[in-house]
Nucleic acid binder design. Structure first.
Lengths: 195, 195
DNA sequence: ATTATAGGTGAACGATCGTTCACTGACAAG
DNA sequence: CTTGTCAGTGAACGATCGTTCACCTATAAT
């Protein structure tokens, strides 16, 4: 017979369930999850988890996950400041990458960079870009554009001389479209994943 | 009296509820959300939404969100291929940034880059880095390390001569620690958000 | 005009939820 | 040793859920 689980261990179980099932368990499922026999115990545990900030209980009794449960991470300051103390860490905001980087999920796509035309802008081959369709390109945006039948990333430059596309690599000359320019979307973020 | 909502409009309502409340609505809430009077109508609508791939109904009748509802984006191929046809787009995998970039949310932190010592590695001032605590640094990892009381990002180089930290910018010489080296964590991803 | 289908309604039923109350045992504090 | 607190149990109750069945109306297809 194992010793009773701590609150943190129960939070871990709940988080694992949430990430696996994309929903919070019902009362019957929580009886099994926490090895309880009493729904009142579940009721009380949820109060304690709300105090711990991992769930929220609506006015109608409905249970929601907070960012703390759903895989968000802690948002700290600048690199040079490093990590704060554990107490300060505990108070740090949480941030969901999905929510922070994507405002229109249905219009946003992830593509992999294969060329080096934007190297000086810090966009390397193998990087990932989030491209939002249907967003009007503005001066200095990085855009996904079609040039000579091939898609490419470039700066979108719009000045007194009209519109042109510029690479961020001196090996690639600016492109002035003769016909209409086809912009697939605007780059909203660049991501480089290690290991 | 408005015309009846299409399935897609109902999916949009459901997605908005999910992103606002971090849970799916119950039957009573869906009556209000979709302007229904009958729980059987909700029941049938959920079948249709499951066929559309935006929710999943478990063996126990419990409702879960799929990635399509929860803000994931479509994963396409390489930039040079651009966007596929609408039919191909529909079949594309979805990907959640939270799940893709973060394997240990509780041990991962986001910090903002302020220096230029890693410029040649495509890490610019203003970029965001995801740093995972408690992960052992390996050769060629980008790490968050403490040098002379200040935290910095560097390559972690481990060879026959021992351990040293190298910048990705010729203006910064390699660092060979005289005392023990303090590594705060390993950089798992770099993110640059535009606009 | 007839038939079929889609998408809604209402009712009924058993299951589950959400909450309250009284209680118990273990443990900590005085 | 006594008292207080915490975290669980069990029971009860009304509310909500999840599902099935029969039915209706609008629309499309024949």
């Amino acid at each position: 017979m194992r010793s009773p689980l701590s609150l943190q261990e129960k939070i871990t179980l709940l988080s694992q369930f949430y990430r696996r099932e994309h929903r919070l368990p019902g009362y019957a499922e929580m009886l099994t999850l926490f090895d309880y026999r009493s729904r009142n115990a579940v009721f009380k545990l949820l109060r304690r988890m709300e105090l711990a900030g991992v769930v929220r209980i609506g006015a109608n009794g409905k249970l929601s996950a907070t960012d703390r449960l759903s895989g968000a991470i802690r948002l700290l300051g600048q690199v040079k400041a490093g990590f704060p103390s554990p107490a300060e860490e505990e108070l740090a905001d949480t941030i969901s990458l999905d929510e922070y980087l994507i405002s229109h999920p249905a219009a946003t796509f992830m593509l992999t960079v294969s060329g080096d035309s934007m190297l000086d802008a810090g966009i390397h081959p193998g990087d990932l870009v989030l491209v939002e369709k249907g967003r009007e390109a503005r001066h200095n945006d990085v855009v996904l554009a079609q040039v000579d039948g091939e898609w490419t990333l470039k700066y979108y430059i719009c000045d007194a001389h009209g519109v042109r596309l510029e690479a961020a690599n001196r090996r690639y000359p600016p492109i002035r479209p003769r016909q209409s320019l086809q912009i697939g979307g605007v780059v909203r973020a660049v991501i480089r994943k290690y290991r």
